[in-house]
């Protein structure tokens, strides 16, 4: 398939996944606040921290209040990772490949964007945020479901899945990093009810709470981190995302797993092996933050390798297509 098309479908799915993640973070935070002693300002900042875009937020806003954060993360067209910007980008990508994706996907994505861009959305987001962000999440899931059930699972679909898995792995690592950083220093809070609520929220941010319970029952920071990084079955654990991305990559190239025919396969394969042969105790000994930081860098390297292997390999031509900007 055309390199440009592969690039577009990969990014279309990354953007949808990104939008869904942002909506979920906000949802969880809204729920969390209901259980927290009021402490003005402190609860909305971490949401922006997860995205890594505090500088941009602070340039445009004076403080981290609820409405400002919701507005920024959801509707700000000047902020490239807001839900609206993500959907606009997903739709632009979708439009440029609408002959590749199914009409169901296109019509859903188009409608999803048009309704979000409507002025009524902002009112609803501020007045009934629980319902609003739930709708965003469900629409993203619907898109994924449509993709799975209306589009052939060929090359294009595999690129789409890789985009989604890479984005998901990145977001899970960010949630964990930010929360761990925020929660651990407060030693006096460990094992208090509030601490428990916070760690529950971390799990919920990754839709992981129920699945975690079945596996571990009791909530401890170490087990939560272990679950989100290393669980082999949970669909948002980093290990699971990497494994799924690898399967799709090998389907595209046709090279057997366990071998690598290009740099993207090499990097991804190595990353997967490292995760499979590491455990949480080892990670905590070396420092979780350092580990996650390194992991994010390696995810970016895989992303870059996918780009140079499949999307913009034309070495003879200057000004080759720019990779889409990433957060």
């Amino acid at each position: 398939m055309l390199s440009r098309v592969a690039n577009s479908i990969y990014w279309m799915c990354r953007y949808i996944e990104r939008a869904e993640n942002v909506a979920r973070f906000i949802s969880v935070n809204l729920n969390l606040l209901l259980d927290m002693p009021s402490e003005k300002g402190k609860h909305w900042e971490p949401l922006v921290m997860i995205t890594g875009d505090q500088a941009l937020f602070e340039k445009m806003n004076s403080d981290y209040n609820r409405d400002a954060v919701i507005r920024f993360l959801t509707f700000d067209r000047d902020y490239p990772n807001s839900i609206l910007s993500c959907l606009a980008a997903a739709r632009e990508n979708g439009r440029s490949i609408r002959e590749i994706i199914s009409s169901e996907m296109w019509e859903h994505l188009n409608n999803f964007y048009l309704e979000l861009a409507d002025a009524k959305s902002l009112t609803m987001a501020l007045e009934d945020p629980h319902r609003f962000f739930k709708i965003i999440q469900m629409r993203s899931h619907l898109f994924t479901g449509l993709m799975d059930s209306t589009m052939s699972h060929g090359e294009a679909w595999n690129f789409a899945r890789i985009g989604m898995m890479m984005e998901r792995a990145d977001k899970t690592s960010r949630i964990l990093d930010v929360k761990y950083f925020m929660l651990l220093p407060q030693a006096d809070l460990v094992n208090t009810p509030i601490d428990n609520i916070q760690w529950t929220a971390v799990l919920k941010s990754a839709s992981a709470f129920e699945m975690y319970r079945k596996e571990h029952h009791h909530i401890t920071p170490r087990k939560v981190a272990g679950f989100l990084i290393f669980d082999s079955q949970f669909p948002r654990s980093i290990r699971h995302c990497i494994a799924k991305a690898q399967i799709c990559l090998h389907r595209i190239t046709g090279s057997p797993s366990g071998s690598a025919s290009n740099v993207a396969e090499k990097r991804l394969g190595r990353l997967k092996a490292d995760i499979e042969y590491t455990d949480i105790d080892e990670v905590v000994d070396h420092g979780l933050h350092e580990y996650l930081d390194r992991l994010q860098t390696r995810l970016n390297q895989v992303d870059g390798a996918i780009g140079t292997t499949f999307f913009n390999f034309k070495p003879l031509i200057e000004n080759a297509t720019q990779e889409q900007s990433q957060a």
Partner: peptide, 28 residues
């Protein structure tokens, strides 16, 4: 729409190069 209906590639100028006397698409 037309490329979808015909089942052929939709290409932009940036997807095509001339090399060895033929026009080629850049594919994955």
């Amino acid at each position: 729409f037309l490329s979808q209906q015909m089942g052929v590639e939709l290409v932009e100028g940036q997807d095509l190069v001339v090399s060895d006397g033929f026009v080629h698409m850049l594919t994955t």
